[in-house]
Amino acid sequence: MALVNAAVVVLDCAEPEKLAVFYRELLDGQDGEASANLVEIRTPGGFRIAFRRDVNATPPSWPRPENSLQAHLDFLVEDLDEAELRVVGLGGRPIETKDAAGPYEERGYADPAGHSFTLRLVPPTAPKQG
């Protein structure tokens, strides 16, 4: 029997209710567990993310060097332009970064509380030739 049955990504922020709305809309999620200091959402695919109240929370400064990245989320999308319009429409903002090396196109953003995340293009799944 597994010792750990589930995992939840938890982001600290000053206003968990407001940040939960941003991610619930972005991920087409549903409300999950909630208390005075924690709000959780669940996505149709089973991903769980929660937001914990920390009135002293300060967002990371990444990509500026004075603070570490801490952690960030990657979301796989089929259309970067469409996903970017949704992120910005919900209150997220693009983060100025250089193009990432590698075969997949990606773009960096910050949520309304300043947590960074990446939209990464899902690579096409064409059958191998030969």
Rank of each mutant, 00 (worst) to 15 (best):
L69H: 14
R107T: 04
A113T: 00
D79Y: 09
A71E: 02
P103V: 09
D111W: 08
A113E: 08
Y104K: 13
D99N: 14
L69I: 15
L90R: 06
P103D: 02
V88I: 15
E84F: 09
E78D: 15
D74H: 07
A100C: 11
E106M: 15
Y104M: 14
L69F: 14
E106D: 13
R93V: 11
A110R: 13
R86W: 04
Y109E: 00
G102A: 01
A100T: 10
G102T: 00
V87P: 04
A83K: 07
A113L: 04
E78I: 00
L85S: 15
D111F: 05
I95E: 06
P103N: 04
G89A: 13
A101L: 12
A71P: 09
A71L: 11
T97M: 00
I95N: 02
D81Y: 10
E105W: 10
E84C: 09
A83P: 04
K98P: 05
L80R: 10
G108M: 14
E106P: 03
D81N: 12
H72S: 03
L73Q: 00
L90D: 05
F75Q: 07
G108S: 13
F75K: 04
A71N: 08
A71S: 11
A83N: 00
T97W: 05
R93L: 10
G92Y: 00
Y109V: 05
A83M: 08
A71R: 03
G91N: 08
L69M: 15
D111E: 09
D111S: 07
E96Y: 02
G91S: 01
A101T: 09
A71K: 01
Y109C: 08
